[in-house]
Amino acid sequence: MPEPQRSPVPWENVGPQFKKPFKQAAILVDLQRCTGCHSCSVSCKTEHEVPLGDFRMRVRYLERPAPQQAQLSFVPMLCMHCQDAPCMKACPTSAIGRLDDGRVVVEEDKCCGNKACVAACPYGAIFINDDTGKAEKCDLCTHRTEVGLDPACVSSCPTEALRFHDLADESDEVTAMARRQNAAAWKGDEGTAPSVLYIDHEKWMEDKVNLGVQISERDGDPIYEQDNFDRKKR
């Protein structure tokens, strides 16, 4: 495909001709760089007009184990776009599918809202939107990537802690970085083969509850617990 002509004004380069030809769309999360600023999650909510109380993506604040307990770690969480996706298998109406570039998406018109996917997801990445009654989750901003823009969270991250890349392309420099820095899957032992990988992932993070920020469940849990990401567990 010939390179499309580009304007020197970056935001004028929008259209199907700018779409990145990825085989396995993925996000690389670099926890060395994340400052917990919530730019990604607020950008995501704004982009998708997500109702209050629900999240396609969010940032966890975790108190580190000793001897680093005086500091916090910040962990952006989103749909892992599993290559072996439990939500897809669980859906009785085949409403969860996969695009050509491997991303996992919900087809809302096929969704019956029975929450099987919500229960099946080990990451708590899916919720039922009360306004529509349909399952909703991160779709890597298909409406943006179709016209050559990165997903909203990636585009809004001020520290390159989130990068959009082609996991199937070993020549993609972000993919090479994931390799070099031993990027790991969140809850790798679930065996779902996530496309979203984490640099500086540490096992303890998976079991820690959230701390410091106040995103609580809709019932206003006073200990600032998790939202839909942990609903299954609770």
Binding site: R179, G188, E202
Partner: peptide, 21 residues
């Protein structure tokens, strides 16, 4: 304890990152 998924260390490049089923 890093690198649980990517099989850290030499030769890691041989392990495919994509194993879509």
């Amino acid at each position: 304890g890093a690198g649980a998924a990517l099989a850290a260390g030499a030769g890691a490049a041989a392990i495919p990152l994509v194993r879509r089923l």
